[in-house]
Design a protein around this nucleic acid. Sequence first.
DNA 1: CGCCAGGTTGATTTCGCTCAAGCAATGTGG
DNA 2: CCACATTGCTTGAGCGAAATCAACCTGGCG
Lengths: 237, 237
Amino acid sequence: MSMLRGSSERITCFNCQHRERSEWGVLTEKELQGLDSGKICREYFPGEAIFLEGDPCLGVYCVERGLVGVRKTDAEGNSVLVRIANSGDTLGYRPFLAGDVHRGTAEALKPTIICAISGSTVRRLLAENPSLGLQFLERTAKALGDAEEKYFQNVTLPVRARLAHLLVVLKDRYGTVAEDGSLTMELPMSRQDLAALIGTRPETMSRAVRQFEEDGIAQFKGRKVHIRDTRDLLAEL
Amino acid sequence: MSMLRGSSERITCFNCQHRERSEWGVLTEKELQGLDSGKICREYFPGEAIFLEGDPCLGVYCVERGLVGVRKTDAEGNSVLVRIANSGDTLGYRPFLAGDVHRGTAEALKPTIICAISGSTVRRLLAENPSLGLQFLERTAKALGDAEEKYFQNVTLPVRARLAHLLVVLKDRYGTVAEDGSLTMELPMSRQDLAALIGTRPETMSRAVRQFEEDGIAQFKGRKVHIRDTRDLLAEL
DNA sequence: CGCCAGGTTGATTTCGCTCAAGCAATGTGG
DNA sequence: CCACATTGCTTGAGCGAAATCAACCTGGCG
């Protein structure tokens, strides 16, 4: 099931759904032409790697469709999910802008289409259009705030509260609220990825999920979650 | 002991020792004039606050001399030291660039001189000179990498290794290496701040320090540290 | 002097990790 | 089509690192 063949039209930056909401929204028609010709699009299947920890950073990546996770792994095999990128998100810009190698491994979590933009193209666009740099600047600053917040929560909050917080965050993107105030969502990733996302182990995640069920806060069936009352969740923060 | 009165010359951006190594190094003479006139300098004493969590972000701050710590505190009084800023560092740029309020409280850890630069000044300079934005961009991207690294270490490494790592980082700025390869340094902060910096409790920090002494890796006397052989420290990472 | 914040130390508890086993769903080869 | 690996998830038992609780130093300072 190739998504690329599925649609008859070629992927271009001009008809990209996400462009306006992304950093690239500030580009002129002419610059957009440069971006479009400086990119290579490809499909990735779940589990497939987009780049590896330690790889030289050759450019940035746009997630056209799908879902990508970025992991850090140490020698003992400890793995932490540092970031997840949805369609419309830009990926790998951190090491590119810092002049660093990739410090995490990116892999598709779902069938995903990625547009890879060469470093020289990005550099040229940054020089041509100062607004682009400011867009990236704002985005990076926001990400820095999120990273610090995540660190803080990891240090101060127990697993249960961290899970509650994670569910609240995921709700905004993946949840749908019913008329009675209850919430349903399809989690975009496996249990062990949920665990890695809040810096804990799969076993601990499993127990935390069970606790929430026993306390009547949420029901889990596979990747489906149903939450009676969102306020119960907020009370855990 | 006012450091401001101590030196007869006024603090200007023109004779600032740190300018070349800071983001502001890319400014032209004319722009520098704008920066200089858009700032207000002031001395802060240890413990004194520069800005508070939740404060609207009015601009950015330059540490002319001294040392500043940025803390996050939660309702239960849990406190984590998110960042320390030395002379030459810029402070508060994250919330400013992200259009956020301050998410941490900054306080002087030593007698400190701060130049506060108004938001309108920074915005004007960013618009005038695109290189300035790129400087901030690179710096922010590096900080983001550091933050993710710190998160990762906190999740995967025990306190002992985190302390070893912290000492290695502090060594670069505060340590002096003797001819025999031994290292001496004066720690710039209290024990509880060291603890807060690696996300642990003062008691645990105390025990970790003791362990290092018992294992003959380092000697601590107040804020003075002596390390026989730096390789012992690196072996702990 | 007494006070107090910062630091150390000991005793106890607890949260989350490790190890180990079992289970369901999915895939694979004979 | 069935025996079987394989993979992801759950559950239990035990352990251990660090937090908590509590007492007690220590040095600086009014």
